[in-house]
Amino acid sequence: MSESTAMNKENFVTCDLLDANPESQVCLPNIEGKSFHSFGAKDKFCGEIVTVKCFEDNSRVKALLNSDGKDNNGEGKVLVVDGGGSMRCALLGDMIAQSAIDNGWAGVIVYGCVRDVDDLAQMDIGVKALGCIPRKSTRRDEGQTDLEISFGDLTLNSGMFVYVDNNGIIASDKPLID
């Protein structure tokens, strides 16, 4: 991208953002033999991070995505879900994704699985996950929000910023674009 073209939320490229901000964190493309795939209709999304840690229980994911997903500037946030990399059940499906859209969220990153992928592919939201499986999670009202989570060489906290495109996932303590 030429230097005369200002990057924004619609035209950013993570490669260019990282070149200009080398201190940013980069998610590894392969985590213990697993890699992130795009499942939503938006391949490119970014926003302020909200973290949730849950293992095979999407109670907190559902509750968060059913709440206001806008930051103080009216931009959509990104829910980053540490599902422990579990491939045994999905932490996000089409109904919860629709709730996220309805509440203004920009996207969801799941260190785990999703389901209803044909529907997700048609939905106006960014979704990155390790894989898909038809089994839904069990809801036990477990999980924690707004705490530090780590996976793929990333260490993330709520209030940080994440940028996702087909090149990968990068994160920063500060916003990298306007």
Rank of each mutant, 00 (worst) to 15 (best):
K53N: 10
C54I: 04
F55T: 12
E56M: 13
D57A: 04
S59N: 04
V61S: 05
K62R: 14
K62D: 08
A63N: 06
L65T: 09
L65Q: 04
N66T: 12
N66Q: 14
N66F: 10
S67K: 13
D68W: 04
D68E: 08
D71M: 12
N72L: 03
N72G: 01
N72W: 01
G74F: 03
G74C: 08
G74N: 05
E75P: 00
G76M: 06
G76W: 07
L79R: 02
V81Q: 04
V81C: 07
G83V: 05
G83C: 10
G83P: 02
G85V: 08
M87S: 15
R88T: 13
A90K: 12
A90W: 06
A90N: 11
D94I: 10
M95G: 01
M95E: 08
I96L: 04
I96M: 04
A97P: 05
Q98M: 14
S99D: 13
S99E: 13
A100H: 07
I101G: 02
D102H: 11
N103C: 10
G104Q: 05
G104F: 01
G104L: 07
W105D: 07
W105V: 11
W105Q: 06
A106K: 04
V108S: 06
V108L: 05
I109N: 01
I109G: 00
Y111V: 05
D116L: 07
V117G: 01
D119M: 11
D119E: 15
L120R: 13
L120A: 11
L120P: 00
A121T: 07
A121K: 14
Q122V: 07
M123S: 11
M123D: 09
M123Q: 12
D124G: 09
G126E: 05
G126I: 01
V127I: 15
K128A: 03
K128F: 06
K128Q: 11
A129Y: 03
L130D: 06
L130K: 00
G131N: 02
I133S: 09
P134Y: 03
P134K: 11
R135S: 09
R135Q: 11
K136Y: 06
K136T: 13
T138D: 14
R139D: 14
R140C: 13
R140I: 05
Q144V: 13
L147E: 10
I149A: 11
S150V: 08
G152M: 03
G152E: 02
D153S: 13
L154G: 05
T155Y: 07
T155P: 00
L156G: 00
N157T: 10
S158L: 09
S158G: 04
S158P: 01
G159I: 13
F161P: 03
F161K: 00
V162I: 15
V162S: 02
D165H: 07
N166W: 12
N167R: 08
G168F: 00
I170Q: 02
A171F: 00
D173W: 02
P175K: 15
